[in-house]
Simulated scan of single mutants.
Amino acid sequence: MQQASLPLAGKSAVVTGGARGIGRGIVMALAEAGADILIADLLEDDMRATQEAVRGLGRKALVRRVDVTDAAQVQAMVDQAVAELGGLDILVNCAGVISIHPVANLTEKDWDFVMGVNAKGTFLGCKAALGPMRARQSGRIINVASIAGKEGFPNLAHYSASKFAVVGFTNALAKEVAQEGITVNAICPGIVRTYMWDRLADEWKNDGESVEDSWARHQLTLIPQGRAQTPQDMGRMALFFATMDNVTGQSVNVDGGFTFH
């Protein structure tokens, strides 16, 4: 395939939480479409592995350790992308964390940690990206929320709150920048076999049930299609948002029919 035929040829992207799981799926989809990528994460070995995979496609790939709750680190991430990749066309805020507690046992520390990474991290990433995107009057911001940002789940009230925040923030920011050539959308993944869902499958297993049995049961009982989603599914949704000029303010479920709103 010729470089010129790739839809993101000549574009540059930053993906937070891009080292593994959904983040890596998004990184690879954007790279396969022609984008150069800065991968931001805290997982050194996984970042390097993903970097090599992107370079194997003939794209530029940078890695940077970033705590997305630290405004200075987030700004430095964006500045590096602009300086070394020639600009910032696409930002994907995928860094996320989860913990499992009923509200009665939820500590302020747990609340602040989950809200800090998931909600504040998204805010800081978007704020830092607006400068270079406004300078070009062009940009694509893609936030990774969750179906837990559309409906609540027991023992995940703080996680749901953080993802509801991402959904609302996405819609509001999209309206702020709608006439500046910048779109802002969110992906709401369903059940994806990542580290997070392994923890949930373990937490929610029935008596005598293994994690694998719990995982299989949740796919069959919660997903009308009867099968889990994949990081590659999320990558394809990110590519859609990255290439659409006239779609903004949306939070789209990629969940096999789990939710309808």
Rank of each mutant, 00 (worst) to 15 (best):
A40T: 03
D41M: 02
L42N: 14
E44F: 15
E44Y: 15
E44C: 12
D45W: 05
D46R: 13
A49V: 15
T50Y: 13
T50E: 09
R55W: 03
G56L: 07
L57Y: 06
G58A: 03
R59A: 01
R59L: 00
T69V: 01
D70P: 02
V74R: 09
Q75K: 11
Q75R: 08
Q75V: 02
A76D: 06
A76I: 05
M77N: 00
Q80P: 00
Q80D: 00
A81L: 01
V82K: 00
V82H: 02
A83Q: 09
L85W: 02
L85D: 01
G87C: 09
L88H: 03
L88C: 00
L88D: 04
D89P: 04
V97I: 12
I98K: 01
I100S: 09
V103W: 15
A104Q: 12
V114M: 07
V114Q: 09
M115Y: 07
M115D: 10
G116N: 05
N118S: 07
A119S: 14
G121M: 05
G121K: 08
K127P: 01
P132N: 04
R140N: 13
R140F: 06
R140P: 11
V144E: 03
A145Y: 14
S146E: 13
I147L: 07
I147W: 09
A148G: 14
G149V: 01
E151D: 08
G152A: 15
P154W: 06
N155L: 08
H158Q: 12
H158A: 06
Y159K: 10
Y159V: 05
S160L: 12
A161H: 08
S162M: 02
K163M: 11
A165W: 11
V167M: 01
